[in-house]
Amino acid sequence: MPKMNMVQAINLGLFQEMSKDDSVVVLGEDVGVDEGVFRVTAGLLEKYGEDRVIDTPLAESGIFGTSIGMALAGLKPVCEMQFSGFSYLITHQLEGHASRFRSRSQGDWTVPLVVRMPYGGGVRAMEHHSESREALYATIPGVKVVIPSTPRNARALIVAAVRDPDPVIFMEPKRSYRAFREEVPEEEEVMEIGKAQVVHEGDDITVISWGAMMRPTIQTVDKIGEKLGKKVELIDLLTVSPMDSITITESVKKTGRCVIVQEAPKNMGVASEIIARINDKVLMYLEAPVKRVTNYDVVTPYFGRETNYFPTPDRIYRAIEETLNF
């Protein structure tokens, strides 16, 4: 299997879906000639032409609103928001229309589309280029929010997103784009949207994360094993909404302890929802309160001080240790 980074892996997924299905079109700002500012759409224009790889005018609502129309008319648009920080202009089309056509028409009209957006910090970028606002989109019924964490699952999930019958917000952890390589099979691989993945099995504590936070979490989990001799069950959420409660609650039932690592601020985050679900289903199995390691409830700082705000391996380690010792 060839080793590739996440950019190459998503690109592979798009290439293959476009070759299989001529209703798949890619559109956005600078996705064609420039191949996307992160090069995720590299080579697509050359291979599929400008009818299918569309450099659009600079207008996010326009990109997304026309994608809704394309989807209604039978195409499968994969549109790109250059950065998730520019995506808020689509929220009214997402909340007002994309998420509702199916329900509004009782299934007559559907909007199968994908919105790709690089999200999150850690790349020393300017203001609006570093936020993690997955919770914002996850509150909208009828919308799926997917966040891959590695090249391999990014490829398998972008394929699933393109084939999904509903609008999918596909948030790409830009910090992980080129941070590491992984073997990705050339042949088709699809993961199911809505399913979390148990990355390591363990009996002592459940640790849950997603996206860019998976890497510091994995490092920490390894250390916990080495230093404390404890077996961590590590879960990669992969789909934020609709959430896979079963994988989470089954694990917590087994371990009785849980720590959640989230790049976004603490208030109203995905971690809060995970805790609510644990509370609903497996409260009586808990041996300790569920802990969250998150960003703080401050406006995302400029990159000069951003690293102090993300969950770090040290903070994650302490949270796990405290929860184990409770």
Binding site: S61, G62, F64, G65, T66, S67, I68, G69, M70, A71, L72, A73, G74, L75, P77, H92, Q93, G96, H97
Partner: peptide, 14 residues
């Protein structure tokens, strides 16, 4: 006004 964009997307598909 939101629907006008849907019309343009449909037009593109046509």
């Amino acid at each position: 006004g939101a629907q006008t964009l849907h019309a343009v997307g449909i037009g593109y598909a046509v």
